[in-house]
Amino acid sequence: MSETLNEREPAHESEAVSLRKEDFIETFFRRGAEFATELISELQSLRRQTSQLQEENLELRHHLASDDAIRELLHKIEALESEKDHLRSNAASTKDQNQDFAAMYVAVEKELDALANLYFASYQIHSTLDPQTVLGTIEQLLAQLVGTSSFVIYLARQIEGERVFVPIHAYHCSPRQSRIRATDGPIGEAARDQVHSVVDPGSRKEEDPIACIPMVLGNETIGVIAIYSLFEQKNHFVDIDFELFKMLSLHGASAIVGSGLMAQAGSTEAGLRTYPSLPA
């Protein structure tokens, strides 16, 4: 029996060892499983964090990129603003220049018109050597270009030892006087000063003209054009009228004297003979 018991003891021991081993293994595996589960869970958590960080990183990169774009846009806006200011300044300067050019254009047009009228008048007055046609041309120039509705042309004469002006052509009026002494009134004054004049309305007598144009050849006043009235629609003289007065003063005188001499000579031949031929 004791032997049986003794024989049985080792069996119990090995059984106990076996049980401990099983426990150990079971615990080991359980712990291993728990650890693996923990590891898996931690790995999953890390993966999530990584993914989150990646997303954040991407987002940050986008932010950075958009900040760069904004900075670039701001630079562009700044450059465009500066260009706009420059263009505005240029536009203002161009506008000023345009206004200057427009004013110059108007002035040049006015001057051109005045020159055209003067050219036309001098061309007309020298286009004939017939005395009546010369007077008719002066008449037309005063009427059509100046707007004169009545005037008288006086020419110088030596009568009874005295220098006087006598009327030789009247347009739409009768001569107020048959002779005017070379020193009398506005006509005498214009003849003496050899400058056209507009008579001051305040001191003007009823028989006085409103303007006088002396006709001067060399230093000699050969006559005076006395203007008595203007067209209803014209109430004062303008700059171009005075230019025409100057032209009439010189060209009118030479045309009147030239055509008078031509009428006396009877042909152009006599006039041409005054120029001697050159020896061959």
Partner: peptide
């Protein structure tokens, strides 16, 4: 247009 005329 009334005379005297201005070309412009």
């Amino acid at each position: 247009i009334t005379k005297p005329i201005q070309a412009p």
